[in-house]
Design a protein around this nucleic acid. Structure first.
Length: 286
DNA sequence: AAATGTAGCAACCGCAAGAGT
DNA sequence: TACTCTTGCGGTTGCTACATT
């Protein structure tokens, strides 16, 4: 199939829409609807391509568009849905009435992603906050005592698994940030409102970890099945203490207990977070 | 005050899927 | 079945406003 000539070659306008231009598709669609986007600008007398009209309508002119900043609830929804669906913006937008995929995509890239990545970016790319880690390790034990450890100072080799991520950040640590952020919010300053979310059953934990750290990551990292632990940095939450999540055998739930064992590098606080099911764990020596 | 850097957002581009012929 | 056309999606770009040096 021969590609249609671009807008400019057809003498059509590109770039930002004016208020006058906006009125044309609005009144046309009010009268006729938008059966055929390609035909719409011709019939409405607009020097734009159909694609541009469609985009303008969907992202801006639609009457049911919700204006204004995203609420905290909306942001939380986006974060959770993105965790489940990935970059399927239209699917995420479908769950947020009045919000467009483009808008959600922008919010994700400009706000939400940074919130999740920030701690680990410091870990991987900021020289003055870099923790000296003698080795990267990602290990997983058997299903009954699945201690997950991500301790990465060499994330570059993992980037191919997460092409959507900022190349300046560590894929490995970025991936685990989702988990660590949840831990942070669950344990920060005694605010335990998210604890229920983290009180997940063993299988769910396994499932969510499978989503967060897929098998190719383990392989790519050259990691075998042994022990695991996770290291994050966090100067966004200076009041956060070191928490040692200890699996509760009787309830088969994941729970957290504060620990006095934390490390101060001078610039940042660093936390090793252990996810473990089945039995209590021994903290390493720093 | 000017230059430079950064963030936010609207719009564009290329590709793929699905419908129609 | 093959081809054409349209639509929708996700990635990317470029403009503008604001912040910093």
């Amino acid at each position: 199939m021969v590609r249609a000539p671009c807008c400019e070659k057809m003498g059509l306008k590109k770039g930002p829409w004016t208020a006058e231009e906006d009125q044309i598709p609005i009144s046309y669609i009010q009268k006729h609807g938008h059966g055929n986007w390609r035909a719409l600008p011709k019939q409405a007398g607009l020097l734009r391509c159909g694609k541009s009209c469609r985009l303008r309508w969907i992202n801006y002119l639609r009457p049911d568009i919700k204006r204004g900043n995203f609420t905290i609830e909306e942001e939380e929804t986006i974060t959770k849905l993105h965790e489940m669906l990935g970059n399927r913006w239209s699917a995420i937008a479908a769950k947020l009435p009045g919000r467009t995929d483009n808008e959600i995509k922008n919010v994700w890239h400009t706000h939400l992603k940074k919130r999740l990545i920030k701690p680990n970016q410091m870990n991987s790319s900021s020289s003055d906050t870099k923790r000296v880690s003698n080795k990267s390790k990602i290990k997983r034990s058997d299903s009954n005592s699945s201690t997950i450890t991500v301790q990465s100072s060499e994330p570059a080799s993992l980037n191919s698994n997460f092409p959507e991520m900022d190349t300046t950040s560590a894929s490995c640590t970025t991936t685990t940030t989702t988990t660590s952020s949840e831990f942070s919010s669950a344990t920060n300053t005694g605010e335990r409102k998210n604890m229920n979310m983290m009180n997940i059953k063993n299988e769910e934990l396994e499932d969510s970890l499978e989503n967060i750290i897929d098998e190719s990551l383990w392989t790519e990292a050259g990691i075998d099945d042994e022990t695991t632990n996770m290291t994050i940095s966090n100067n966004e939450l200076p009041s956060l203490q070191y928490y040692d999540p200890v699996f509760n055998n009787s309830e088969e739930n994941l729970s957290f207990q504060p620990s006095t064992n934390f490390e101060d590098d001078g610039m940042d606080f660093w936390y090793d977070i252990f996810i473990r099911t089945g039995e209590s764990i021994e903290l390493p020596e720093f």
